[in-house]
C-alpha cells in the first residue's frame, strides 16, 4: 500500500505543490526568497533543455539565446508598446519557440558535435544582436526599472501583488510545476516514445516511418519556448536587462544542471537546477574559497555520479533493497 502510494506520480506532484506552498513560509527573508525564485527560473531552463537533450538526444547549446529572447521580447513589448504583462509573456514564449523552430529547421540535419556547434553559434549571434542593436535593445546600456507582473485581482480574494517575493515565487514555481506536469505527460505519451526512439537510433526510427526531422523540430520548439518563459520571469524579477545575463556561459550552466541532476529524467534537471543554484549561495559563508569548493563538488558529482544525482539515488536504493533482501534470506536460513 505504502509503496504503491510512493510510486504514484500524483502523490509526488501533490507533495511538490505542498513544498512550493511551504517554502516561502520556511524561508521568510528576502534573500532566500530571491534564491527560491532563481531556483524556479533555473528549473524551467533545465527541464526545457532536458526535453530536447535527454529525450530527443539533441545537444542544444543555444538555451541562453532562447532565455534572452523571451526576456527581451516580453520586456520590449511591455516597455515600448505598453502591452499588458501576460500578453507580452505569451509573445516572449511564442517568439522564443519560433526561434527554436527556425534554428532546428536547419540544425536537425546535424548531429552530435556539429549540432552543438551550430546551436552555440546561434547563441553567439543572438548575444551579439542583443548587444549591438542598441536602438532596439539598449544593448550594453541596459533596460532598467522593468516592472514585475501586474497584480492579480480575483473577485472575493485580496489582490495578489507580485512585487511581493513570496507571491512572485508562487507564480514562477507554479508555472514551473505546470510545465513539469505538461512535459511529464508529453514524455509518457507516444510523442515521448517517438522522441526516445529517435534518440536511441535515428535510422531505426526512420525505418519505422517516423519523420525524425519533424519531431526534432517540435522538441526544439517546446524546449526553447520553455526557456523563453524563464526569460520573461527573469526580466520582471530582476528589473534589469543587460545582454551579459544571456552570454553563452549561461548555456553551459544550464547544461551542467541537466547533467548533474540526470539527463533523460525530468526530475533530475529539477534537482540539478536546485542544487547548482543553492550550492553557491550556501558556500558564500566560506568566502574566497566558495567557487573553488563549488567547482570541486560539481566535478566530483560528474566523476562519481556519471548518470547524475537521480541515477546515483536509484543505485543506492537498489543496493539497499539488495541488502534488505540478503538480510531476509539470512534470517530465513
Amino acid at each position: 500500500m505504502v509503496s504503491a502510494i510512493l510510486s504514484s506520480r500524483r502523490f509526488w506532484l501533490i507533495m511538490a505543490a505542498i513544498v512550493i506552498g511551504l517554502l516561502p513560509m520556511i524561508f521568510s527573508d528576502s534573500y532566500w526568497r530571491t534564491n527560491l525564485i532563481v531556483c524556479a527560473i533555473n528549473v524551467l531552463l533545465a527541464v526545457g533543455l532536458d526535453f530536447v537533450l535527454g529525450y530527443a538526444g539533441q545537444l542544444n547549446l543555444g538555451q541562453s539565446a532562447f532565455y534572452g529572447i523571451g526576456a527581451y521580447v516580453s520586456t520590449l513589448m511591455i516597455m515600448k508598446l505598453g502591452m499588458p504583462f501576460w500578453l507580452a509573456f505569451a509573445c516572449g514564449v511564442l517568439v522564443a519557440g519560433l526561434a527554436g523552430m527556425l534554428l532546428s529547421i536547419f540544425a536537425v540535419r546535424l548531429r552530435g558535435h556539429y549540432l552543438a556547434i551550430a546551436s552555440l553559434g546561434f547563441a553567439v549571434i543572438t548575444y551579439q544582436i542583443l548587444l549591438n542593436w542598441i536602438s532596439l535593445t539598449q544593448g550594453p546600456l541596459g533596460i532598467y526599472a522593468i516592472p514585475p507582473p501586474p497584480p492579480l485581482r480575483i473577485p472575493g480574494l485580496p489582490v495578489i501583488e507580485f512585487n511581493n517575493l513570496a507571491n512572485l515565487f508562487y507564480l514562477t514555481a507554479g508555472f514551473a510545476l505546470l510545465t513539469y506536469i505538461l512535459l511529464d505527460q508529453l514524455v509518457r505519451s507516444p510523442i515521448g516514445e517517438t522522441l526516445t526512439a529517435i534518440r536511441e537510433d535515428e535510422i531505426s526510427a526512420a525505418s519505422l516511418g517516423i519523420n525524425c526531422q519533424k519531431w526534432k523540430v517540435l522538441a526544439f520548439a517546446i524546449s526553447s519556448a520553455v526557456a523563453g518563459a524563464g526569460g520573461c520571469f527573469y526580466a520582471g524579477f530582476v528589473g534589469t536587462l543587460v545582454p551579459d545575463a544571456f552570454f553563452i556561459t549561461e548555456s553551459f550552466t544550464i547544461l551542467a544542471m541537466v547533467i548533474v541532476g540526470g539527463m533523460g529524467t525530468l526530475i533530475g534537471p529539477v534537482l540539478g537546477a536546485i542544487l547548482l543554484t543553492v550550492l553557491p549561495e550556501l558556500l558564500r559563508g566560506i568566502g574566497d574559497l566558495r567557487l573553488i569548493v563549488y567547482g570541486v563538488l560539481v566535478t566530483l558529482v560528474v566523476l562519481f555520479m556519471p548518470g547524475g544525482i537521480v541515477q546515483a539515488g536509484q543505485r543506492i536504493a537498489a543496493r539497499l533493497r539488495q541488502r534488505a533482501g540478503a538480510g531476509d534470506t539470512v534470517s530465513r536460513t
Binding site: T34, N35, Y234, D244
Partner: peptide, 14 residues
Amino acid sequence: GPLPATQAVKRLLD
C-alpha cells in the same frame, strides 16, 4: 552582474 549583485545585496541586507 545585475543578478549576482541582487542576490548578494539581499543576503547582506537580510
